[in-house]
């Protein structure tokens, strides 16, 4: 490719990086649905249609207690949305789903109908990582969809590099781990070794339903149902796979880089 072609192409197409977060977020695909909203108050007394239909047993309705949908286990198949007679479970079309605490993904109870979004890192870590965060990605039995959508964040439309966030080859250069996959027993040692190779202070991000709770393979004896049992997780991003916008929102939320237009709830 000649120099002339490169410059011409650049001038013709201009900068293809999206304005977000300084502009509005790109729209989710219209059939995506986004995060779920669960209003337990709307449930019929004896109905448990959603519980039976959920493939990952993410929904529970213990006797005398309101229905609880664990978005960390959810693979977003929307079966529960289709089957609910009272529209207690709905799709919010909201791309924001990242949380700091695992419990913040359990939806249903009054005041907890939606995801309690992630707070930023504490002052010390924010000063350290706010402008420069290097992550080592570890695929611990991920199916390659979460990995693909993480890769997409490096492309010219999303351009993760402009925030100072970069994926590095060596764990010694990294500040955090981005884990995908339910963490198979065969990957346990590799994950632990990679975690230890990260210099302190370090953070861990669990990306996708598998890394949070095992995903579609929940309960299989060949893996650990997610990363929480092995390493301390600082950020959970649900999805199967999470849309790149959800991942980006989660990362920026963690670093408090989102700006006023999309302030934390």
């Amino acid at each position: 490719m000649s120099v002339h072609d490169t410059l011409l192409n650049r001038l013709k197409r201009g900068c293809e990086t999206m304005a977000y977060p300084k502009g509005p977020a790109p729209a989710l695909p219209d059939r995506h649905g986004g995060a779920l909203k669960v209003e337990a108050a709307k449930c019929d007394a004896s109905c448990s249609a959603c519980v039976t239909v959920c493939p990952t047993e993410a929904i529970a309705r213990p006797a005398g207690k309101p229905v609880a949908l664990d978005l960390g286990r959810c693979i977003f198949c929307a079966e529960c949305v289709t089957v609910c007679p009272t529209k207690a479970i709905t799709q919010s079309n909201d791309h924001r789903m990242a949380v700091r605490q695992r419990e913040d993904l359990v939806l249903g109870d009054t005041g907890k109908e939606q995801v309690r979004l992630a707070q930023a890192l504490d002052e010390k870590l924010r000063r350290l990582f706010g402008r420069s965060l290097k992550l080592r990605q570890v695929s611990a039995a991920g199916c390659n969809a979460c990995e693909a959508d993480t890769n997409v964040l490096g492309t010219i439309g999303w351009d993760l590099g402009r925030f100072g966030i970069q994926f590095v080859a060596s764990p010694r250069h990294a500040d955090g781990l981005l884990i995908t996959g339910p963490v198979s027993k065969n990957m346990e040692l590799a994950l632990k070794k990679t975690y230890i190779a990260l210099p302190e202070p370090r953070i861990v991000i669990a990306l996708g339903a598998c890394a949070i709770a095992g995903g579609p393979f929940i309960g299989h004896p060949q893996h650990h149902n997610g990363a929480s049992g092995l390493v301390p997780v600082d950020l959970f991003i649900p999805g199967c796979p999470p849309h790149p916008l959800t991942i980006l929102d989660g990362l920026l939320r963690l670093l408090d880089r989102l700006g006023e237009s999309d302030a934390r709830r």
């Binding site: 695929s139 611990a140 039995a141 991920g142 996959g181 339910p182 198979s184 027993k185 065969n186 990957m187 590799a190 393979f217 299989h220 004896p221 060949q222 893996h223």
Partner: peptide, 8 residues
Amino acid sequence: FQHRGVEE
């Protein structure tokens, strides 16, 4: 490394 036990 990614054996998840799908067939089983």
